[in-house]
Design a protein around this nucleic acid. Structure first.
Lengths: 359, 359
DNA sequence: GCCAAAATTTGAACCGATCCAACGAAAGTG
DNA sequence: CACTTTCGTTGGATCGGTTCAAATTTTGGC
């Protein structure tokens, strides 16, 4: 029995419309792309044909090939996609990237994946005009993949030891971390603990300076270097400063504080490598009736908005996140290869989470 | 003088590699797409040629045309792009959409624009397999544009009066709003004020029930209907309940409260059409030494995570946001036209921002 | 009514790949 | 050694548009 309706409804193409309207496909194309150059009568006829056949306008897939430009920039990370919406730092960065894109009419493609094989494929096949790469963890792998696309791309917060040739926008993590530590040493603190960002895929737990030097993410390394440079300067034995590697989430931060405050000699000052860590730490400290900054001072890193409204408001090192986002988008859209590396300055913002050492 | 280097470095194409390696373009394509079927010696030769000529693998633009699938879903809204990262409700929704996408390996394209002309173009030219449309304000316009693309699409929170044929996932705003109002009436409240979501492009300010019926966003209308249905039920004269239209931001909410509390008969209960509004309201009330829920009770709408940790924690109507995101992605990826409209239930979650009427 | 200029329309070429029927060469079989 | 398989390679067709030089039609001037 023959099928009553056509078995496969192939989508309508521009050529079909052209034929139906009795014009060449060139003219049909013009009806949509430059309607003003085609005679009104013809234009209406073509539009009518399109309407009648259920044609939804030229397929961008086809146009793309000729046009070349996608008009969208890709933002890639090795984290799961929801990182963009969950992580406070990422959110602020994305908001500033969004604004820059809005201003130029460009779209944003979020590129990531559950596993690294899929991620590689997704980067290779992303339809974008360029990449902004978030370099938290697994940065160099991502940079390599992005570079292989031969598209303009900018790395945010790239490993400072990495290839000098790639365009990167970052902050001076060492200087920032030193600033944080100096703020606390100047307040008289001498007993420190560090809540670190992830350094390996090994999960969370106490770690050492040597381990941290192997961190995948350069920010982690550099921030520790900055902290310890300052602590050493005032003759603190950094080998005795406990370092706890977290996963930048509540569970691991709380475990870290459980561990740190279980020891005999508890710290009076905590250096947190991210505001997110610091904010979770504030929660833990409040729940354990440890006053901030009375008993313990804490300084974060990043300068996310949540830090301004926490209880107490967080002293932190603020990164010029908006500026970074703007620069990154600008670099991509202008395909500006003129700079290879840009280190932006950071600022210490003193709020209420740090005070004089109780000792 | 002849230029020393080629004036225009046209990007290397697969065909160039093929010629350089002395194979057909078909074989060259196979080297990248199905390496196992090409003889090792040839494979290496082609790869070497690619390497030598700086070829970054097959251009997805070309592949796309043949493959048809972009492997990305578009999320569209009439708000600026940064809405996705700023608005608490959008963020939670996006996080759940992200998770669903991660699970299937699909990417996400954010589609929006500064002005509506650009927006139309961006939707028409978005490279996606389908759309999820955020229908806050200007929803029907967006839906129309998206439908014209003839791609699978799902509207989130679409106007309930709108075309029945479009797939939409939403919550029962009327029932939810009634639930919120009933919670407060049962606590004895009789003097109400409503802080409304935007209803027109006219900015913020006091408004009326009639105006609200013209709201672009159906959620706004329905929530008011729900509130007033319940208030009428207990014989409150709803025509005397002040309604203040906000822009869902701090400035307009604070202006609204300034206005509402300037009146002679101040409310004991505030119905906020979004948690974001409610949270800004809590700030204002705290700053004006009005205790919650001692002097005034407030109930939000949405169920964003911030509401659970505010001071005091917010009583609200929670939407099954994660569920909505999951359903939407599923519908797009499976091109599931089997449902046209899905109304999900909402829940009242009582926290500390609501209590007995002081009267 | 004739001719040049202006306005439209045409159709081939191209964008950069993938797919596939057909073909040639090498390997296996009787 | 002739004959089938098997394996690898080829080159043309195709995806769905845009572009542009050339052809055609219209318009305007005299």
């Amino acid at each position: 029995m023959a099928p009553l309706t056509s078995a496969k409804t192939r989508p309508v193409r521009l050529a079909d419309i052209a034929k139906a309207a009795g014009v060449s496909h060139g003219t049909a194309s013009n009806v949509f792309a430059r309607p003003e150059i085609v005679r009104e009568e013809v234009r209406e006829r073509v539009k009518a044909a399109a309407e009648a056949m259920g044609y939804g306008g030229p397929d961008p897939k086809g146009r793309l090939l000729r046009a070349g430009k996608v008009n969208a920039i890709g933002v890639a990370t090795a984290e799961p996609l929801s990182y963009f919406f969950d992580d406070p730092f990422a959110r602020v960065m994305m908001a500033s990237i969004s604004q820059a894109c809005d201003a130029t009419g460009a779209g944003i493609s979020l590129v990531s994946a559950a596993n690294s094989e899929q991620l590689a494929w997704n980067i290779q096949s992303a339809l974008v005009d360029g990449f902004i790469v978030f370099c938290v963890e697994g940065g160099s792998k991502l940079v390599e993949l992005a570079r292989d696309r031969k598209l303009p791309f900018v790395a945010l917060d790239l490993d400072s030891d990495d290839d000098e040739a790639v365009a990167a926008i970052g902050v001076d993590n060492i200087a920032g971390a030193s600033l944080a530590a100096r703020h606390l040493t100047e307040l008289g603190h001498r007993r420190f603990a560090v809540l670190a960002l992830p350094c390996a895929d090994s999960g969370f737990g106490p770690t050492t300076q040597e381990q941290m030097e192997k961190a995948l993410y350069s920010g982690t390394r550099d921030r520790l270097r900055g902290y310890f440079a300052e602590l050493s300067r005032v003759d603190i034995d950094v080998s005795r400063v406990p370092i706890y590697e977290t996963e930048n989430n509540e569970e691991s931060v709380w475990a870290g504080l459980d561990h740190i405050f279980a020891g005999a000699e508890t710290p009076t000052a905590i250096l947190a490598m991210s505001d997110r860590i610091a904010l979770h730490a504030l929660d833990w400290l409040r729940q354990h009736d440890i006053t901030v900054p009375g008993d313990v001072s804490i300084v974060g890193f990043d300068g996310v908005p949540e830090g301004a409204v926490s209880k107490p408001p967080l002293t932190t090192i603020v990164q010029p996140i908006a500026e970074m986002g703007r620069l990154a988008v600008k670099a991509i859209l202008e395909n500006d290869g003129s700079f290879s590396r840009r280190l932006l300055p950071v600022d210490l913002v003193v709020r209420a989470s740090s005070g004089p050492s109780p000792a």
